[in-house]
Write a protein that binds this DNA or RNA. Sequence first.
DNA 1: CTGTTAGCGCGTTCAG
DNA 2: CTGAACGCGCTAACAG
Lengths: 332, 332
Amino acid sequence: MANLKDIADAAGVSITTVSNVIHGNYRRVSEKKVEEIKQLIARFGYVPNQAAQTLARRGSRVVAVIAGGNENENIFLNPYNAAYFGALAMHLYQNNYYPLVRVSSDVRTIEQDIRGWNVAGVMFNGLFMRSLNQIHSLSCLPAIFTDGYCDLPEINQVRIDDEAGGRLAADYLTEMGHRRIGFIGTALKESGAEQARLNGFCGSLTAHVTALAENGIFPAWTPERISSLLLSAQRPTAFFCSSDLAAVRMIQLLHSLGLRVPDDVSLMGFDDLPIAALSSPRLSTIAQNIDEKARLAVEMLIRHINNRMLPPEQIVLGVQLVRRDSVRQLSE
Amino acid sequence: MANLKDIADAAGVSITTVSNVIHGNYRRVSEKKVEEIKQLIARFGYVPNQAAQTLARRGSRVVAVIAGGNENENIFLNPYNAAYFGALAMHLYQNNYYPLVRVSSDVRTIEQDIRGWNVAGVMFNGLFMRSLNQIHSLSCLPAIFTDGYCDLPEINQVRIDDEAGGRLAADYLTEMGHRRIGFIGTALKESGAEQARLNGFCGSLTAHVTALAENGIFPAWTPERISSLLLSAQRPTAFFCSSDLAAVRMIQLLHSLGLRVPDDVSLMGFDDLPIAALSSPRLSTIAQNIDEKARLAVEMLIRHINNRMLPPEQIVLGVQLVRRDSVRQLSE
DNA sequence: CTGTTAGCGCGTTCAG
DNA sequence: CTGAACGCGCTAACAG
């Protein structure tokens, strides 16, 4: 519970001197005092009070990390979210910033965090372009957008090349001899990333390949719908799933129908999360480097915190095909 | 950027009056002023400054959530951690507390968070009993321990009945006709929970059942070690894995050796995470209610924050067997 | 080289 | 019913 004054009193100096020692301004303090004060700081176990620093410095080292979603739902049950936000938090800590991870789509809640904590910057994840301009504080605060799509160029963003991922998947499935291919998405209308994957996928299919994608959100793909599709004569020989999680769920559904992967139906995922390699069969998928994406996003934010005049930046990360066991080579 | 004074000036009153309105002390303010001030607060988009409140109140609404582990590792890649810490954060937010999730085993780092943020309480997860008494601030701060084992009774803790889980697993495997059973742990020496699961497991095995557990940490169970065990004549017919994740990894290892689950080898997991039902085959496992554990832990903490005189509490949650497809009935 | 001082935004007496 | 004034712990500009 020791504060600056306690240390100052014990050392017989003023708090300014102690403050200087703490911040490394040694030239203004005699060497002997420096040592003496350092000792006392250690002995007292002095830790600067973040609230007081925030107030005095007119700014904190807190970064708001916003994840769109329902506040009463544990979004970390989704392995992608867990991996990504975990990585963001880790990289923020490594740069001496504190993540304030808030799950909410409510503009007011977000605004309260931003202003209440006098945040140094904001990281938005996913897409909420509609309501975003309502967050007034953003005009004067460094912000990074990841995994989102929007046409405004004056925005800092980091994302992966989802379209290229879709193309890679289409090319690979075609190369493996598949001609009737389905697409499994989870929230097409809401996720720019998923839409881009689908675009790349469809764009790269040659004329005689059928994409069975539906342009609706996933609830439209009820298990019943998918089941009847799978049991029909026109059953796709392969599915491109917009995430590894969707692919793993698909495996379950197929099993429940007595269909085997890849013998009866081939499957591709997206992301290359740990579960992709732990799935049975191991998933062929499109890999993205989540940790690097997080690192680059954090570094970009810090750049803009340190230099508020920097022009907007965009980074698009590459993806790559990972061949494993969930896609069967069709003869003929 | 509006603060109390701005509102006060605009309303032609003092900041005290505004403060009273904000905190619902309406009896001291005329009704008209109350309405007027409320309007202004909304129009200005006023949000109280957390740093200033923390300072003035001599305490914050931040709760330190400590996860032991390496700070340069993304522990949310482990689905159990993701599920549990995600749930903790969610329940803290719902009670208007801010989680400060720190991954570290370094006592100094932890202490800095606790003191620097003037934390309202601390939640420890996993076991670090050795260094814990070095955290001096703890003596005067509400703290909850989860997933840990220690004999001190003067401690608030929430955990599950790991031993019962081990027993359930042993009983079930025995009932299914298995007589040579192995145990796969991940960090026996460090995790009290895992040790308890093993204890319960061994305790409930009848004499003619062999537990092939090794009392070492997982690195001793190199894939090579396990492989040679699996290829030997004394190969266990079933394995009890200390987590669903370990079980899923085991499936991969078995597949790589050309062995199938459950046809050649049966497997049980622990936790009943989403991956258990998404695995192929779907895992039979011991289920714990992670969300409820988190909720109870948060509620317990808040109880102790609100009443510092409360005696220590211990909660032990039950677990239950979930039969799915990874354990084969042995005839004979 | 060192100390004094004026805020930072808010909570909380205590006088009016 | 209302406001002035002090303190929370720290920073930074300034004076010595």
